[in-house]
Design a protein around this nucleic acid. Structure first.
Lengths: 210, 210
DNA sequence: CGCTATATTGAGCACTTGGTCAACAGCTCT
DNA sequence: AGAGCTGTTGACCAAGTGCTCAATATAGCG
């Protein structure tokens, strides 16, 4: 006794939304076809009608998560500061965005380690990471050109890799221990490390106050 | 028809070794009691005799992995260089050690995301991370004291958090894309970022050559 | 030698999983 | 109205899971 019919695309979206809810709650290990069906208020078989297999569902979910995850640093609002400051600011914005997305980040990391064994997942994640790095290249490129004598042997790509790697490390920490992860202190430290000139004191004071 | 008997401790170790092999090969998701038993050439029931439950096995494995993972930076061989250089050197040694331990690192990250949902695992990982950070504090402390005017608002703890976070980000990258992770380029970039003075040119040249 | 404590086995249970499939309901088109 | 495609269902299957347990071989002890 089938229920109401719905256009295929819409159902797919519903199911993906349900899958996302399940996956952020119970991780990839808890992402069973039955759990998704139940979450969507739908029969088990329907999941296979729309995604053919669990693997199809997982990959579709990964695509969706990667699509809706903003990976390009927001270069807007760059009010004519130095290139290095702009780069720092982009990193800071990425880090600041992590805590509020804790479960999404945890899910992404779960996909990440899944990619270790699953070629399709690995390809997708590698591409997403590559895009992320590339999005940083204009910033890192400008930063290096602004004082090239300070960065011997540093390429825009290597600097972008270090910058994004840093953000990814923060992501890991946020996932494991969100309470301990002190964003302002982190940013103050980062600034002091990287900047030659006096760092942003407003930020430093904010950090000390918390 | 029971097989040869072996003292309890020894069997436990054998089983844990087998579990480690299975887990580095198939991740935590593939760590079933039967897989471990088979890997150890032993019956399924024996796993429960020694670990009571799968959870007991997993936790014992986690303990073993954390124990045998050297988390304290090796401060030996510090031939009277500046504190900042010593700190950098410790970070570099940790990063250099990552590629050869790729599957162990991947397993640790798997535990890491498991800790998101499992309190016991979380506790253990948080402790290990805390120990790791603390092990860096002497180095970061010395570095800050060596030129305090350069690090306003930076505490030994926050600097240790940034340093270890950086290493953890590298760990993620190594796990996902070991071929793309260019260790020398990474280290050169890190040095150029942090150091005021001219960075280690030997290292820079090595990076450019590869 | 026999006895007892202790490892060890493997069959078996209850349950979950991914996946299949025949049946069936709703929609559109003629 | 009837045909036909399409979305939907729920029962079903085989495989795999964690876990239990009576049976049993072994080692150590008297």
């Amino acid at each position: 006794m089938p229920g109401p019919r719905i256009p295929e695309d819409q159902r797919r979206d519903e199911l993906l939304a349900a899958a996302y809810r399940v996956a952020t709650r119970d991780r990839l290990g808890g992402l069973t076809t039955r759990a998704v069906a139940k979450e969507a208020g739908v029969s088990n078989g329907l999941v296979f009608f729309h995604f053919t297999s669990r693997e199809g569902l997982v990959l579709a979910l990964l695509d969706r998560v990667l699509e809706t995850t903003v990976l390009s640093p927001d270069t807007a609002g760059s009010d004519a500061r130095s290139p290095v400051l702009q780069l720092l600011h982009a990193i800071e914005r990425d880090i600041e965005g992590l805590p509020e997305n804790r479960d999404r980040v945890a899910l992404l990391i779960d996909f990440w380690v899944m990619g270790t064994q699953h070629a399709d997942v690995r390809t997708r994640i590698q591409k997403a990471l590559g895009d992320y790095r590339e999005a940083y290249v204009p910033l890192t490129s400008a930063a290096i050109e602004s004082e090239p004598e300070r960065y011997p042997g540093v390429t825009p790509e290597s600097l972008a890799a270090v910058a994004t790697g840093f953000v990814e490390g923060c992501a890991l920490q946020v996932v494991m221990d969100p309470d301990r992860f002190d964003v302002p202190a982190y940013l103050t430290t980062l600034r002091a490390l990287v900047l030659r000139e006096a760092p942003g004191y407003a930020l430093a004071c904010r950090a000390r106050a918390s």
